[in-house]
Design a protein around this nucleic acid. Structure first.
Lengths: 122, 122
DNA sequence: TAACAACAATTAACATGTTAAGGAATATCA
DNA sequence: TGATATTCCTTAACATGTTAATTGTTGTTA
């Protein structure tokens, strides 16, 4: 993740915050639980990350009026701009990564890691 | 790492502390820099980890009399006992892991990850 | 030898992972 | 309906990763 982290250090956000932005950018408005799952974050982490991201103006948080335990989170224009500005760069990094590793080995690695994932969870 | 973490939670030490103990058990007395490298820890992390491990009586820290900037770290009897008590169990976990994944895929994964490691570092 | 560079380690500040405990809102059921 | 359980989220406490600044020590060199 180092090349990605290097890119992100220019932006002042972290890997996890980047992931949150990407998920929000892709899926739009999400409730906190869904967001946490899709961004692979535990709830306590999301609570903190959301707070700092709101202060930075990257996301908005709104209560669900129907169920006031729930919370909705959405990306702001500033957040979307950040995604837009760095998506190309991020794609280049991944491409370079695949090129260096070799396309086949890259796929193999993803497969093996995917197999690992469910194994580790039970 | 979840099965390993589960095992370690019984012992009250963390993954990183376990790694420090294993390295010390294998190599004996080490200076802090070498230990940090072999245990894949950054120095600030090692500083903190060593402090807590010393308080727990798992390691000892001694200054190098020739160069008082340097520090030597060694495992204590208590630390070695912890290693001895859980080495078997840890080996079983790795064996089960290989069995589930398949020996060949396990080797493939290790190879791919090893290739990843240097790539990510530059 | 006195100034300065280089080195080893620590400390500080911030962000996250992780487990447990707590708080507020809603659901359930006798 | 009122007590209880459940759900969603937050807080707290601790451990680590990471970068930068700092403290001692040792090396170098003019």
């Amino acid at each position: 993740m180092t090349p990605i982290r290097d890119m992100l250090s220019e932006t002042g956000i972290t890997e996890q915050q980047w992931r949150v932005l990407r998920v929000l950018s892709e899926f739009g408005l999400l409730d906190a639980s869904t967001l946490a799952n899709r961004a692979s974050l535990l709830f306590p982490s999301l609570t903190r990350i959301a707070t700092t991201m709101r202060k930075k103006g990257l996301i908005t948080q709104t209560r669900d009026v129907a169920d006031r335990r729930r919370q909705f989170i959405a990306i702001t224009e500033a957040g979307q701009k950040l995604i837009d500005d760095y998506t190309d760069q991020s794609a280049l990094i991944v491409a370079e990564f695949k090129r260096t590793m070799g396309e086949d080995d890259y796929e193999t690695l993803l497969d093996l890691l995917a197999r690992l994932d469910p194994m580790v969870r039970d």
